[in-house]
Design a protein around this nucleic acid. Sequence first.
DNA 1: AAAAAAATCGACTAAAAGTCGAAAAAAGTA
DNA 2: TACTTTTTTCGACTTTTAGTCGATTTTTTT
Lengths: 197, 197
Amino acid sequence: MRKGERRKLELLQIAYRMFLSKGYENTSVDDIIEAAGIAKGTYYYYFESKEQTLEEVIDMMLDHEEEKAREVIASVIPVAHKVVGVIASFRPDTSEAPIKEALHETENIIMHEKIRSKLIARIVPLLTEVGKQGVTEGLFECDDIPERVKEIVILSNELFDGPVYTETEVKVFIDTIERILYAQPGSMGFIAQLLKD
Amino acid sequence: MRKGERRKLELLQIAYRMFLSKGYENTSVDDIIEAAGIAKGTYYYYFESKEQTLEEVIDMMLDHEEEKAREVIASVIPVAHKVVGVIASFRPDTSEAPIKEALHETENIIMHEKIRSKLIARIVPLLTEVGKQGVTEGLFECDDIPERVKEIVILSNELFDGPVYTETEVKVFIDTIERILYAQPGSMGFIAQLLKD
DNA sequence: AAAAAAATCGACTAAAAGTCGAAAAAAGTA
DNA sequence: TACTTTTTTCGACTTTTAGTCGATTTTTTT
């Protein structure tokens, strides 16, 4: 019962890299099994379907990102920075696998969308925690934190999904965050600086 | 050269209905040609690919919706109502074809996403027009209207995409619209009433 | 060592998108 | 009208890819 676990991990790693670099739809099961050096049957011994593989790959990815986000939350930095830090934690790690345009392009819609919805479900509870901390500290003067942080996540997703964004978009985005949370005008201005990377 | 145009229209209509009722991915080209009573070759005489058919179907749909939106803009109602009316115009028409869950479900991601991105591109210019009118009238006290209305479109899309939304979500959404546009608090409250349909 | 369970194999099936050359229908021309 | 050309249609065929299944090998347990 031990060998199987290692193999599954290995397959998830391979699928992860291929999905990210070539895109989910451009990666065939045959590509994966060839890279892994196994037969079709072995693949389907571990996965119900290609789509289920994708789900597990994404969950794995998000596990990792959630861990990073929790470190941010646990650290001793201003709440406003935690908000940004948590959102930033959920950007896919470009160092592990080349992402090229894969995540953005038309061919990768399914993966993109699955990441999107799973990510929102994962990140909202975390950000809610941070948001409530902000309310306690008097930084955010509003109720309904879960709904508000969800809006922020949705907007940031859209903004950073595309490969480009204008200065005006960023400026308005920052303003919107402040206003959604009833934060002090300018209190999120530091984001603009961060985005020059 | 006349017969062909009629045929193409017919095929687009059939595809439209099937995509909406069964979903894009659950509709095979064979389904379409069977419903139309034509051969494979005839279909590919009119369309490069199944995906291109989808694009054309969506464009056709959006043409129709944009027309409705333009009527709203041309009408003599308060600007705030125009904002809502334009957004509402771009909801797919449930009377023409049964939509069941097709648009929302997992299997229909591709169509859903294509609609989403094309819709945003179409609606933002229209709403910008309305927004600027609001600025002129002193209702919205802000610059960068295109970026702001885009945020509103993104949020409303997300809210109305799912089959359900809570009262709190609606309340926060309305508040957010007002704050993004620097409108008078409560000036968009009428939306809550409209959503009870 | 024998039995049971887990893991692997690869040929096979099924579904679906897309191709292509030939034939029929329609439109244009003399 | 008889012809030529263009448009439209046909359907068998190819290709790609996800997924199945029974047999076999490897690993683990007793």
